[in-house]
Write a protein that binds this DNA or RNA. Structure first.
Lengths: 111, 111
DNA sequence: TTTTCATATTAACATATCATAATATGTTAA
DNA sequence: TTAACATATTATGATATGTTAATATGAAAA
C-alpha cells in the first residue's frame, strides 16, 4: 500500500494491450458499425427485444430506405440477426455481448 | 420468478433508450473516434499511462504523420489530452470513463 | 547560430459513408 | 390475379476518412 504505483494499480482496470492487438481490427469494425447516432439508437431499441422494420421506423427518425440500409449493414457486421415472420422481418441483437456493451456504454456515458 | 419475462428481466442489463437518445450523437462521435484499429491500439497503450509520440511510434505500426494526425483528431474529439515537456509531447487518456470503456471492451471482446 | 530531433501541418488522391429519391421484390388480403 | 403493405436494392451526389509524401514548426544540443 506504500507506493503510488501500487495504489494506482488497484484503482485502474487491468488492460492487456497484447490481447487487444489480436482483436483490434474486429473490435474497431464493431465500434464503427455502432458509430452513428441512429444506428446506436436502433441497437438501443433492439436491446429491449426484437422489432420489425416498421416498428423501428416509428421509434427512430429515419427513412424506410435508410433504416433498411442500416439494418443490412448491421447484419453484415454481425450486430443484428433477422428472421421473417409472415410479412414482417424481425431484427434482434445478434450477440449477448453486444447487449452488455450497450448497457455499459449507457451507464458510463448517458447519465 | 414464474414468468419467462420476469426471469429475463433479471438477466438482462437495464437499458434506458430515452437516456441514450439525448446522448447518442456524442456517444457515436466517441465510438467513431475509436473505430480504427490503430486508434484503438493507441488508446490501449495510453490507458497504461502517458506516452510521447515517439514512444507510440515504436508501439504502433503507424507512420509519424499518421500518428500525429490520429492524435490530433483524438484530441479534438476529447479522447486524449497532451502536454509538452521539453521536446516531447506527452499524450494521455483525457477521461477516466474512457479507461473504463477500454477495459470493458477488452473484457468482453478480447478473450 | 546551425544542426538535429520531435512533432505538426498541408496537399493530394483513393475509398467509405451519409442522405435522398426512385424502383424493385416479397407477402398477404381482397 | 390484382391491390396494398412491408422491406430491400440501386443510383447519385455530397461529405468524411484513410493513406502517403512533402514540408513546416519548435525545442534542444552541438
Amino acid at each position: 500500500m506504500k507506493s503510488a504505483k501500487k495504489l494506482n494499480n488497484t484503482q485502474l482496470p487491468k488492460i492487456s494491450v497484447a490481447k487487444m492487438e489480436g482483436a483490434c481490427q474486429e473490435v474497431s469494425d464493431l465500434l464503427r458499425a455502432l458509430s452513428h447516432p441512429q444506428r446506436l439508437l436502433i441497437m438501443g431499441h433492439l436491446t429491449q427485444g426484437p422489432k420489425t422494420v416498421t416498428e423501428l421506423t416509428g421509434l427512430c427518425a429515419v427513412s424506410q430506405s435508410q433504416l433498411s440500409q442500416f439494418l443490412g449493414r448491421m447484419k453484415a457486421e454481425g450486430l443484428v440477426s433477422s428472421e421473417r415472420q409472415g410479412k414482417y422481418q424481425y431484427y434482434a441483437v445478434a450477440d449477448k455481448r453486444l447487449v452488455q456493451l450497450m448497457a455499459v456504454i449507457q451507464n458510463i456515458f448517458c447519465c
